[in-house]
């Protein structure tokens, strides 16, 4: 009688756990959790702690040093000024191209490959290409000069524009692939149905495709924004790292490896994270107001 009671008790516990979706398969999460803990959580918390332990002054001294120095605070603005337009351009440019590339057609694979190649290039190669092409003696300016459109070379590198171009080139493939995936998740018969109901292509896009795609656009914007916000190599290679493209990661780098003030560097990294999270939170807040259910497609 008692042993039977114990057995049913154990069974009941198992059933209750199963009801909450807890079973032995959860152990499969362990490697991922360990990975996150060791390689992300621990360094992050360590940096957070470090930012409150300045060499001199109170525990907020590093943050004070950052926020009271206009030269340092300016880097936040410099970075936002690059990352926000870059993310926006990437999303806006990817939508029509991805829309056109839904479905099957000849040469789709070649075209997709071409559009995605910039991912494989890396920032340095892109930067070199930009310098060669858009630099003062690059082809672009040589063509402009020889056709007499301009008298002096247009400055498109080693300033804001160079970095923006670089961010757009390297960020576009991500935006394109993500949006293509979101778009192919939308049932193409919805647009056809709208057509038979009298909607022209503009109305079909605005009333049907765009509302269904908007959550995906928000996510894509967040991801490309984060990529662009942590810009470092191109800000130095094709930008003006002492001036208008002195982005926040450069400030953190200089604090850490030129002045060896690890506390200040950590504080700057924390500010960087806070700004990123702020922008993402705003975008996701907007996203939460949108329809996010089934879009009828295979995605």
């Amino acid at each position: 009688m008692t042993s039977g009671g114990v057995a049913t008790g154990r069974l009941a516990v198992r059933h209750r756990l199963a009801e909450r979706g807890i079973d032995r398969q959860l152990w499969l999460l362990l490697p991922a959790l360990a990975f996150i803990g060791v390689l992300f959580l621990y360094p992050f918390l360590y940096g957070l702690g470090l930012s409150f332990q300045p060499a001199e002054g109170g525990f907020l001294a590093s943050y004070q040093a950052f926020f009271t120095d206009p030269y340092q605070v300016g880097t936040v603005w410099n970075t936002l000024r690059l990352a926000l337009p870059a993310a926006l351009i990437n999303v806006l440019a990817a939508v029509p191209i991805a829309h056109r590339m839904r479905g099957r057609f000849r040469g789709k694979r070649v075209l997709t490959t071409l559009l995605v190649v910039p991912i494989t290039l890396g920032t340095v190669l892109t930067a070199q290409g930009l310098l060669n092409y858009l630099g003062p003696t690059g082809w672009f300016n040589r063509i402009l000069l020889s056709t007499g459109l301009v008298d002096d070379p247009v400055r498109l590198t080693n300033n804001y524009w160079g970095v923006l171009f670089s961010l757009v080139i390297t960020g576009f493939p991500f935006a394109f692939l993500l949006i293509l995936a979101y778009l192919s998740g939308i049932d193409p018969t919805l647009e056809r149905a709208a057509a038979t109901l009298g909607a022209d292509w503009r109305q079909r896009f605005r009333r049907i495709t765009l509302p269904l795609l908007a959550p995906g656009l928000a996510t894509t914007f967040c991801l490309t924004f984060v990529l662009a916000f942590s810009v470092f190599p191109s800000a130095i290679l094709v930008g003006n790292p002492a001036g208008e493209t002195r982005v926040i990661s450069i400030a953190a780098y200089q604090a850490a490896y030129e002045r060896f003030d690890f506390s200040l560097a950590s504080a700057i990294a924390m500010v960087m994270a806070a700004v990123e999270l702020g922008v993402i939170a705003l975008v996701l807040l907007w996203r939460s107001t949108l329809y996010k259910g089934s879009t009828g497609g295979k995605g």
Binding site: T189, L190, A193, P211, L212, Y291, G293, S294, T295, G296
Partner: peptide, 10 residues
């Protein structure tokens, strides 16, 4: 009228 109805889900 479509086979999968094609109602606008949003």
């Amino acid at each position: 009228v479509f086979q999968n109805y094609a109602l606008f889900p949003h």
